[in-house]
């Protein structure tokens, strides 16, 4: 019999999440089940406001599937979020590292749900207003918006003052000069229209990434017929995560290309040597966080060692 899965997120339908995850999953399920298993999307927080409670919504079954950022509830995802730290993603893509460690180390961080996709964003960049960043010295004393405590530590290591604020306030805060810049993935430049107020961008410094999850209520999954279960399995997991991360990376590249094409904006692309100067300060933060968690084995598993 036909069934509908409710998928909820908190961003507009035009957000990259639709192309990266929602459409492939939704079309895949439809094709695999002759249109019997479909997805109804509730975007923009229709099934509950804001990003913080997304995991709980899936866990409690308000929606069958939800999308969220691990960084909003970082205490829950301490090990998974190692993948976000500076220098971790690079040789291997983020989704591969996360799934390498998932069964043995990360599964405990996702109780009551079945992760359908786990991935990270394009690399974080400096999005600045009137401040050009070429060396770590350029960051000293600047007020930079960060989204979590790990990023805060990274910015403190660079000598900046980390500032917390909701994402929707970033535009005004940059415009009035409340903050000098933002560290986040470059796709945010387009998502939050930051290109209208930020005029200097620096890419290439190891500043980490942003991690995402798409999870499904475990009970809902268990209650599906075998045929539907197989359809879900075949259209999620490693493959969906890979597609998500690649789509995100492409979107990040588009954003950088867009600001590069604008003559009023500067895009600083750091050389490997210049990037290393940042790494000398940010990579030890990764080391100390991993050590503090006692999670050397998790990192090694992520790296496939």
């Amino acid at each position: 019999a036909a069934e509908v899965l409710k998928l909820a997120h908190f961003v507009p339908p035009a957000h990259i999440i639709t192309k990266a995850v929602v459409d492939p999953l939704s079309n895949g399920l439809k094709d695999a089940t002759n249109g019997e298993l479909t997805i109804q999307v509730y975007p923009g927080g229709e099934l509950g406001k804001g990003p913080v409670e997304q995991y709980v919504r899936a866990l409690q079954g308000v929606a069958d599937i939800t999308w969220g950022l691990e960084g909003y509830t970082s205490s829950q995802f301490q090990k998974t979020m190692i993948s976000e730290l500076p220098g971790v993603v690079g040789e291997k893509p983020g989704y591969e590292m996360i799934w390498n460690a998932y069964d043995k180390y990360l599964k405990d961080e996702f109780p009551g749900t079945k992760p359908l996709a786990l991935w990270v964003s394009e690399p974080n960049v400096f999005i600045m207003k009137d401040k050009e960043i070429r060396t770590p010295d350029d960051v000293k004393g600047l007020k930079i918006r960060v989204s979590g405590s790990a990023q805060g530590k990274v910015l403190e290591a660079l000598g900046a003052t980390p500032v917390q604020m909701p994402a929707t306030e970033m535009y005004n805060a940059l415009q009035t000069g409340l903050i000098d810049g933002i560290v986040t993935g470059s796709s945010a430049i387009l998502d939050f229209k930051l290109n209208e107020v930020a005029n200097s961008y620096t890419v290439g410094a190891p500043l980490g990434t942003v991690g995402f999850y798409l999870v499904m209520n475990q009970g809902r999954y268990d209650g599906l017929s075998d045929e539907f279960k197989k359809a879900v399995d075949d259209n999620s997991g490693f493959g969906l995560s890979k597609h998500a991360e690649e789509t995100w990376n492409a979107r990040g590249d588009d954003a950088i290309a867009a600001v590069k094409g604008d003559s009023n904006k500067t895009v600083v692309e750091l050389s490997p040597e210049e990037a290393e100067a940042f790494g000398a300060l940010t990579l030890p933060v990764t080391e100390s966080i991993v050590k503090e968690l006692g999670a050397e084995d998790v990192l090694a598993a992520m790296q496939g060692k």
Binding site: Y55, L59, G71, S74, S149, Q164
Partner: peptide
């Protein structure tokens, strides 16, 4: 009920926990 879930998921504020 939700607080029991918070305990299970180890939920805390982002910066000072």
């Amino acid at each position: 009920q939700s607080s029991q879930i918070s305990l299970m998921l180890n939920l805390a504020t982002n910066v000072i926990g």
